[in-house]
Computed example of a mutant assay.
Amino acid sequence: MIPSCWRWIMSKSYSIDLRERVAGFIDKGQSRRAAARHFGVSESFAIKLDQRRVRSGSIAPHKQGRPRGSGKLEVFEAFLIGAVEAKPDITMPELAALLMEVHSVTAAPAVLSRFLCRRGFTYKKMPDGVGMRTRRRA
């Protein structure tokens, strides 16, 4: 069972149907707090929903999470991919040192590995114990 203090980590937006019903209840002259009690949602949700509707005309939820392509390694994508393709058996600490040497940017080896995995690279171990990064087939 997941502790109740962790619920905020896995939050989901309320459905559009519920949002429409709460907004409709408020439109009929009821207060935002009364709408919250009636539908079993928090008062802050009803208040913020109505404020958002007045400001933007939309009741749709905001996008959640960080936008893609906003990390500090994005501008070095070509450099990193070129370095891995030039030397497929490069280790992540070596790649981090190369990035620091050439561009004066620090990056943890784990961050570099996740970055390359998102670009389709996998780490393959060979029978002799040496590994190399290769691009996945599309």
Rank of each mutant, 00 (worst) to 15 (best):
P3M: 01
C5L: 12
C5G: 08
W6L: 13
R7F: 08
W8M: 07
M10R: 14
S11C: 13
S15H: 03
I16C: 10
I16Y: 11
D17L: 13
D17V: 12
E20S: 09
R21L: 12
R21C: 11
G24C: 05
I26A: 09
I26Y: 05
I26L: 05
K28V: 13
G29Q: 11
R32G: 08
A35F: 05
A35I: 01
A36K: 04
A36E: 07
A36F: 06
A36N: 02
A36C: 05
R37I: 13
H38M: 11
H38R: 13
F39E: 02
F39A: 00
G40W: 05
E43W: 11
S44K: 10
A46N: 04
I47P: 02
I47W: 08
L49C: 03
Q51H: 09
R52N: 14
R53Y: 03
V54Q: 13
S56W: 04
G57W: 02
G57Q: 01
S58Y: 00
I59Q: 01
I59R: 00
H62A: 09
H62F: 08
K63C: 04
K63I: 03
Q64L: 06
G65R: 00
G65Y: 01
P67Q: 00
R68Y: 04
G69P: 00
G69L: 00
G69A: 01
S70E: 12
S70N: 09
K72N: 04
L73R: 00
V75F: 09
V75E: 14
F76M: 02
F76D: 09
F76P: 00
E77G: 02
E77T: 08
A78Q: 10
L80V: 02
L80K: 00
I81E: 07
G82S: 03
V84D: 05
V84H: 04
V84M: 04
E85H: 04
A86E: 14
A86G: 15
A86F: 07
K87F: 14
K87G: 10
K87E: 15
D89C: 12
T91P: 08
P93S: 08
L95D: 03
L95S: 03
L95W: 08
L95T: 06
A97R: 11
L98P: 05
L99G: 03
V102D: 10
H103P: 02
H103D: 03
S104M: 13
S104W: 10
A107T: 08
A108P: 07
P109I: 05
S113Q: 15
S113D: 13
R114N: 13
F115N: 03
L116F: 07
L116A: 04
R119F: 11
T122M: 15
T122G: 15
T122S: 15
